[in-house]
Design a protein around this nucleic acid. Structure first.
Length: 498
DNA sequence: AGTGCAGTTGACTTT
DNA sequence: TAAAGTCAACTGCAC
């Protein structure tokens, strides 16, 4: 009996129906198609995975199903390892072409893709992978990278014509794989997944919220409103970088006020920096497992479980650190500065290796993007030998960015009844103040677990000495030659008009 | 009104 | 997207 032939569109971290090149190509070709997302057990139990992420993915997929329903199309959500499912499918069907995006992901998904590459080769199946958000695979250095990225971002939006394809009838034997292996209960406090919500955030930003982007970007509270908040939508592909770029450039062209132009240019520059970091990770994916600069393998060799857990659970005794980690645990979001401060505290003040913290924050960040996460972790942990040291002082940060302790009091309720000066520095409470505010230092809220002036000096000394070492320097120059955008200065700046 | 001085601010350098 | 140190210029104030 002749098997029915079909193409597959494999959705990964590109959970949208608009500007989707693989889907577009499949529609161009027409015919029977399986639109599929795979719940991979290996990925679901990985150290980077968390139920909040699965929930976001599920929300994105359910919206896709709703949008496709009028076309008599559906995305099949199937549980199992990709290779197993493909094998099962190919027993009953003749798979011709698989369309997907290239994924600049963690080692696990990269290895899976290599295995699938072998599988398709041995079966004579075609696998066409589209370039994701302008990221190049196989690049050796940054020459011409900016132009290539901008060219990609300026391409016309891919609009698939759903009328030219039909969903296959899923073989009976695969029906058991349809059960969605995650809790259906939505956890409150996280941004909701799906293209329509994604566009609400983007449109709301471009219409109303963007003018304060640059002034609020470092403020713990205000950044939550004045930043676009599209990061999870980019990370899971509810939005393409191209859609964000084109809408933002169009808006920029309409602006008159200098302040507003600056704000939106700043936003667009960061969209391009996002691409820069994902490209770096694509070309240096080993940094999921290793120090970027191997010369740093000789430091931070001791583990301190108690100190680590104090960081993870928000009991370090430094209010802004504790507020930040508790906030990201509850909401999945922090502004850039607070993320950097958390990594700084972990690696510099607690002097702990970065890997476990990187896994933990990957699970907490609703917008986890490995291509940003790992390069940023290394930069902040100062394991590159390239960038200048950024050892944050959490007390100074709170005095500069949370003067009234609003963010601190919100996330560290133990401190909410204290006057501002004590919420910022609870260890300074006098005996009288303790009585007055019914607050017991070290009991109701911990005393600082480290003395940051000492840990600052230690980290400073060790890391500056490291930077001078020839083995650090030689590896640093190799990395720079590979990853620095030397095409032009200010490469991420865009402008419109004269 | 000019001088001395402590304290502040900002540019720049060092770690 | 750092923090701390240095130094010169400046400010406010007392005398």
């Amino acid at each position: 009996m002749k098997k029915e032939s079909l193409n597959i569109v494999w959705f990964k971290r590109d959970l949208r129906l608009t500007d989707h090149e693989p889907l577009y190509m499949a529609c161009q070709q027409g015919g029977k198609v399986l639109l599929a997302y795979f719940w991979e057990p290996s990925l679901m139990k990985d150290a980077h995975m968390d139920s909040r992420l699965l929930q976001f993915i599920k929300e994105s997929l359910l919206e896709m199903q709703e949008t496709l329903a009028p076309y008599q199309l559906r995305v099949e959500l199937l549980t199992g390892e990709v290779e197993d499912i493909l094998t099962e499918l190919s027993e009953q069907l003749d798979i011709r072409t698989i369309f997907s995006y290239q994924e600049s992901g963690i080692g696990l998904t990269f290895q899976r893709d290599l295995a699938i590459k072998k599988w398709v080769k041995s079966r004579g199946v075609r696998w066409i992978e589209a370039k994701m958000d302008g990221i190049d695979r196989g690049r050796k250095n940054r020459s011409g990278w900016r132009d290539s990225m901008l060219r990609d971002l300026c391409k016309p939006i891919f609009t698939p014509d759903f009328r030219s394809i039909q969903s296959i009838i899923l073989p009976e034997s695969l029906h058991k794989r349809r059960e969605i292996p995650i809790n259906t209960q939505r956890v409150q406090g996280f941004q909701q997944g799906g293209e329509s919500t994604a566009n609400r955030y983007l449109n709301g930003f471009l219409k109303k919220r963007f003018p304060d982007y640059l002034t609020h970007i470092s403020k713990p509270e205000a950044s939550r409103r004045s930043c676009a908040r599209i990061s999870p939508y980019l990370a899971w592909g509810n939005l393409s970088a191209r859609q964000v770029f084109q809408k933002s450039m169009y808006k920029l062209g309409e602006l008159k006020s200098h302040k507003e132009k600056r704000a939106l240019e700043g936003f667009i520059a960061r969209l391009l920096w996002r691409g820069h970091f994902i490209q770096k990770f694509e070309m240096e994916e080993r940094i999921e497992f290793e120090n970027m600069n191997a010369a740093y393998d000789t430091i931070r060799l001791d583990w301190n479980e108690e100190a680590y857990m104090a960081w993870e659970e928000g009991h370090t005794g430094y209010p802004l650190v504790d507020a930040a980690i508790r906030c990201v645990t509850e909401t999945g979001y922090l502004n850039f500065r607070l993320r950097a401060m958390l990594v700084s505290f972990l690696t510099h003040h607690l002097w702990l290796d970065w890997k476990r913290g990187a896994h933990f924050l990957a699970r907490m960040f609703l917008d986890i993007e490995p291509g940003i996460h790992y390069p940023q972790f290394h930069m902040q942990a100062a394991t590159t030998g390239i960038h200048t040291l950024r050892i944050y002082n959490p007390v100074k940060q709170s005095l500069e960015h949370d003067q009234e302790a609003v963010f601190i009091k919100k996330w560290v309720p133990e401190l909410s009844a204290l006057p501002v000066h004590l919420a910022l520095k609870p260890w300074e409470a006098t005996h009288l103040e303790e009585k007055l505010y019914h607050f017991r230092k070290g009991v109701d809220y911990p005393m600082p677990i480290v003395d940051i002036s000492q840990t600052y000096q230690h980290a400073q000394k060790v890391l500056w000495e490291m930077k001078e070492k020839p083995e650090v320097k030689s590896e640093a120059s190799r990395l720079m030659a590979k990853h620095v955008n030397s095409d032009r200065k200010n490469w991420a700046k865009v402008s419109v008009g004269k």
